[in-house]
Simulated assay, not measured.
Amino acid sequence: MGGPALLTLGVALLAAVLAVIGVRTYAAGRERRQAFVDRLADDGHGRPRDGTRRRFPSLDRRLRATRAGRRLELRLAATGLAVTPGEFLVGMLAAVTGLWLVAHVTLAPFFGPLAAAVAVWSAFAFLNWQRQKRIEKFINQLPELSRILANATQAGLALRTALGMAAEELEAPAGEELAKVSDKLAVGHSIDDALGELAERLPSRELVVLVTTLVLSNRAGGAVVGSLRNLTKTLEERKETRREVRTQLSQVVVTAYVVPLLGIGTLLLMNKIAPGAIDRMTSTFLGQAAVVAAFALYALGFFLIRRFSKIDV
């Protein structure tokens, strides 16, 4: 074997050794990174910091490695629920399977996929409802938050200190969200960035006004106490207005949910009176098209009623 051949063989062996070392180093780095992320989320005993035990940790790690899983984790974090992406996915799949089987046995095989689609939509609609509920609760706490910040600022405390004080005194969700803001400020984030992320997590006009007031006051100085006092009064008035509007529209909101339920109840009653009627109806193309059209019209009616009853105050 000549010199060039030996040199080529040596370079190939060296490249193979370096490749193996690189792969092992990369894998070890990923494991350490994931262990660090788990320690941040857990209390050291496999449980989240709220004391409950985490389920499906391997599924959570795989979901967090995907873009859809990260988006799902952000949506769950905005709801305030102590549910991991893996738990949500497993629960949704269990609900899909259960509703599919129930619709298949109770009504007809044609309704199985429709029930599964409704289950998926309902799961994400539940997340949106929880997020909106958390936003509403946070908005109701804004007058008290503005009052605490005004008192702390008037006493001579810095805005960072006032935010930390408000995080300790207020209940969830305001206390939890302000604690996240304080943590970001503690590790070097600016007030603009920390408050901007808060406004993105819980979007509302009232919070945007409060964040804008605090950011501008922090940048340019000025009478921040007077601005917060006026803002507190305005937020109190808007809170009462929102409560009156929600009371006036409660009947319309209930109607939006009752109309689709009446359609489903009619199907069940028809199948109860004439057993097998739904199965015979969905055995033909025209019957299936009529059922799909009816469900589409119910969905359209629900959307239109909810759209018309949505009034931004």
Rank of each mutant, 00 (worst) to 15 (best):
L228W: 10
T8K: 10
F124R: 06
A186N: 11
H189M: 14
E144V: 12
G188C: 05
A78S: 14
G156N: 12
L72E: 11
W100Q: 01
A194D: 10
A65G: 14
G112E: 07
T241I: 15
E237V: 12
A199D: 08
A16S: 09
L157G: 04
R70D: 04
M281V: 10
A166M: 09
P113A: 06
A77H: 06
A15K: 01
A155V: 09
T8Q: 14
R75W: 03
A125D: 06
L178G: 08
Q288W: 10
R30P: 00
A119R: 02
T232F: 04
R61K: 05
L89D: 02
R70T: 12
T97G: 06
F303W: 09
R75K: 11
W121D: 03
A296N: 00
I139A: 08
A78Q: 13
V120A: 05
A162R: 11
T161K: 07
V17H: 01
G86Y: 10
I264W: 13
P48I: 13
T97S: 09
A290F: 08
G44Y: 07
R70N: 06
K233R: 10
I273T: 11
N151M: 11
G91D: 08
A123F: 00
G164V: 08
L149S: 07
A150Q: 13
G91H: 02
K180R: 15
D183K: 13
D279L: 14
N218P: 01
F126A: 12
R67E: 15
A115C: 03
D183I: 01
K272T: 15
G29P: 00
T247H: 02
L195I: 08
A82F: 04
V105W: 12
V83F: 03
L170S: 07
V105R: 12
D312K: 11
T241V: 15
R219Y: 10
I278K: 03
P173S: 12
G276A: 05
L114P: 00
T241M: 15
A94H: 01
R75N: 09
V83R: 04
E176L: 12
L59S: 02
M1S: 09
E177D: 12
R131Y: 03
L202H: 09
A179N: 14
G10E: 11
K310F: 07
A82T: 07
A78M: 10
V120Q: 01
N230K: 05
E197N: 09
T213I: 14
L159I: 15
A19I: 08
V225N: 00
W121T: 01
R24H: 03
K133A: 14
F295G: 07
A220Y: 14
T241L: 15
A41T: 03
Q130I: 04
V17W: 08
V23G: 00
V181D: 11
I21T: 01
V20N: 00
T161Q: 15
S204Q: 08
A5Y: 05
Q34G: 00
